[in-house]
Design a protein around this nucleic acid. Structure first.
Lengths: 227, 227
DNA sequence: TTAAATTTGTGAAAAATATAACTAGCCGAA
DNA sequence: TTCGGCTAGTTATATTTTTCACAAATTTAA
């Protein structure tokens, strides 16, 4: 059996397609062509067709895609046809903000619990979500059937928390700590690194200066620097 | 003059290298080889050398890179040798969480102001940061020399806010609204889409099921569906 | 019923990215 | 001073991703 390797770039785009299809449905459209979708964003229609074709022949030649039908397929492919329970570790500002992030609610994700090590926070609530002792993580995971963990802890603790989370049987982790983590190969780790994004913006702002002076590269330090 | 086109993947990695160099400095190291750096993360040493070589010859053959020297170069390249002022639009939970996100402070970014349209919020403070009326955006931008905008507003307002921000002369924007925006070509827009990241995790969790049934693709709906 | 107009799915080409292999410069020891 | 061991910079190769281009399928119009 040939296992098709689907690139993450492809699945990311599926999310975008799905969003657009929802919008089109709201507008009352019944079908859409790959070209129609492509123009909604800045994408190539062949890419859309190819992305979809990895998973099946969802379209009809001469017509396009039946929006409702395609929506159901993508929803199924992305596993969004069932609810996911999210546990957020780290009840700092970021963790709390994520706890009632509307984006979670909108896409079949429910935040079931927050976790922290700080005694003062344990037992408090953020909206509907209670803060638990991180020590009880495994237990709560089983009780609430948590299947996604979000790491909103300081960088220095992120790796050890990831390991704790892995031991509890979690297979999908979203990490906000600005540090590259090592995960077991059967665990999907997605790091959202705001620092990198910021520095990328900074690079853009600085770039014009870099390009002055005819792009001359500075030479290596030739002289030996003893000690 | 040949303008080297530097990939964003390269500049993203520069951020990572910089972080690692800071760590190494803290550990008292003086030099590091590309291979040493590569092993710290999961990277290829040739890639590191190539990334750095776009900007100059920073290394010394037989030795490696002088850490302090390289840090200074990368800091300069990324434009982190000067402070950036950040304005956050949207004083909801996410905006407020970002306002005192330690990552901003750590990398020479200062959050100068929050903006919102909600009368009740205007005038309040989040930590050191005051919430201003979005109507006064241009003015505050000039006053505080804000050069980076962060969009933490609902998706439906994101495009119009982006335009307002652009009019005020901002050239670098980080968008947290889960919607693809159109920016002027001289404005750098970076979207951090948590929904896509989440759905990517969901795909991973669902995948084993997708691969059952020998990867048979469902066929297209052949019958004509009238009306 | 046939022809023209669409539009998918896909193989081939192109572009971008990453890895490997090689060349040359530098250090340290003999 | 010379040689062997490293290691950066760079060229060549491989891989991945995107785009192009066209045959096949379908609808619409004549």
């Amino acid at each position: 059996m040939k296992v098709e390797k689907i690139s993450e770039l492809t699945t990311n785009r599926l999310s975008i397609y799905l969003r657009c299809l929802n919008e089109l449905t709201a507008q009352g459209a019944k079908t859409v062509s790959s070209d129609g979708l492509a123009q909604k964003f800045h994408l190539n229609s062949a890419q859309i067709r190819k992305d979809l074709a990895y998973f099946g022949e969802f379209g009809v030649r001469g017509v396009g895609y039946y929006i409702d039908d395609l929506r159901k397929h993508i929803t199924k492919i992305l596993g969004l046809d069932r609810r996911h329970c999210v546990g957020i570790i780290g009840a700092g500002r970021l963790g709390m903000a994520l706890a009632d992030y509307y984006g979670f609610a909108q896409t079949n994700f429910t935040v079931a619990a927050l976790f922290d090590a700080d005694r003062k926070k344990i037992g408090q609530k953020v909206g509907e979500v209670e803060i638990f002792d991180i020590k009880d993580f495994s237990e709560i995971v089983k009780r609430d059937k948590i299947d996604v963990a979000v790491l909103a802890v300081p960088a220095e603790f992120a790796q050890e928390v990831l390991e704790k989370v892995t031991e509890a049987g979690i297979k999908a982790v979203m990490n906000f700590a600005p540090i590259p983590l090592r995960a077991r190969s059967d665990v999907k780790l997605k790091t959202v690194d705001l620092t990198i994004s910021l520095e990328s913006l900074s690079y853009f702002l600085a770039k014009p200066n870099n390009l002055n002076g005819k792009n001359v590269k500075p030479n290596a330090p030739k002289a030996r620097i003893k000690k």
